[in-house]
Nucleic acid binder design. Structure first.
Lengths: 237, 237
DNA sequence: AAATAATGTTAGAGAAGCCTAAATTTATGT
DNA sequence: ACATAAATTTAGGCTTCTCTAACATTATTT
């Protein structure tokens, strides 16, 4: 067991960044890691923001001594900027681990979740989540019973939330009465495998494959069928 | 034949609120629950914001049809406002449960954490956290291994983070070399009980009680002593 | 080496939210 | 009842962050 890495040696001076500026900083760091040079255009594209806005943000970051750049030139992080960005990135990355690894959201959602949350978490909450993630990883490796149990719970979702092409195993039909009976008669039973063939243009109805047959279902009906998605890709949920 | 039973009754129209407005709405709901009438002054005090700002926010909420109020009069939620507020409150409350119950932060921190996060969590993330909280509660009742083990990990904190009057049990001394030797010789050993008597004006040094003796320690030194806080109050961490 | 394209910056405006100071309205005390 | 106190709103200003349009610079093409 290791518990050395979380040493928060942070000497917080006065660098309180707004959520927005933190985003810019993180973005610059990410881009810098992947390319030789970072330019306004890259940031703008990556954040989905216009270049003038980026320009302005860069000025603000430069005033805070976090970024070093010349007019019309490349953008670089100062040592302080890099240090801060690294902290933000670490936060982002284990938050993403939390959402993906522990909460079993797909990588993309987990990432965007982390993006939005990272600016609002207190250091203490960060630490606790970090520990939870580590604990979970340790436990998952040794395949303790509760990991599986938890996973089963977390992986449940209504059939209506799958995307086109997704495959899943039915866990239960969570409605009662006539509709339940109808669904069960159609073959929606626990353990059965199902695949989403495609959604109609307005997302309703959706076409499914079940036991080799194609079936159309209204989204409202599909909502009552609780499934466990079966991963196609190794990395995906 | 009708099968409307599955209908998710929430028909999200276009009520996308900013984080700030969500806060106001939630605040109004909370106050309304605890008092007969809600007034600008109450909101201002509760959110730590000046009355003119509240006034302006109320106008914005009224324009969105979430609040009903007359000039210089009381403030009430419309049915839609109440519905939305209730959703926000539910989110808040299980998030607080997550931070307090699962992550073992004290109630107050857990609450403020929930406050800041609730506006930025996607519905999916909410759902997963909700499930995790429920799972945790189930497990905690039957005292399964993971609850206890996880709790031990989550409850660890450096001695330097305790507040005056807090009591704790030492879990380990997480430094090496001469300092470690010195601390151990002073009596800081695993299982020993310790109490924070008080901090000096500048938070350094801090005065401790250990085995009936009073000891002064520099904060930097105390950081190396990992303890598990012992709750005084039933509700506290 | 121009002319053109791509990239970056300035200028100006607008929305959200916050503030203080100055009315205005409602409540309260004698 | 009327003067004062309290609560509320209005007015006006500030900051952050965004945008579009116009201008400036650098890069590329011919």
């Amino acid at each position: 067991m290791k518990h050395s890495s979380v040493q928060e040696t942070v000497e917080f001076i006065g660098t309180e960044l707004s959520a927005t500026l933190e985003d810019y900083l993180e973005c610059v760091a990410m881009l810098a890691a992947g390319q030789r040079v970072v330019r306004v255009k890259d940031i703008a594209k990556s954040l989905g923001i216009t270049m003038p806005s980026v320009s302005a943000a860069i000025v603000r970051l430069r005033e805070k001594g976090l970024i070093d750049s010349e007019k019309y030139g490349y953008i670089e992080l100062t040592p302080q900027g890099a240090a801060l960005a690294e902290r933000v990135c670490r936060k982002h990355s284990f938050l993403a681990d939390f959402f993906h690894g522990v909460l079993r959201m797909d990588r993309k959602s987990a990432n965007s979740e982390a993006c939005r949350l990272e600016h609002h978490l207190s250091p203490e909450a960060c630490r606790q989540i970090y520990r939870l993630v580590e604990f979970h990883r340790d436990q998952a490796q040794s395949e303790t019973p509760w990991t599986g149990e938890l996973r089963e719970i977390l992986d449940e979702k209504p059939l209506s939330e799958l995307k086109e092409g997704d495959r899943a195993v039915i866990r239960r039909v969570a409605v009662e009465g006539a509709l339940r009976k109808r669904l069960v008669e159609m073959g929606f039973r626990k353990g059965e495998k199902v695949r989403v063939v495609r959604y109609a243009p307005l997302r309703n109805p959706l076409e499914l494959e079940l036991k080799g047959y194609h079936i159309s279902l209204r989204v409202e009906e599909a909502r009552g069928i609780i499934v466990r998605q079966v991963g196609d890709e190794p990395e995906e949920e």
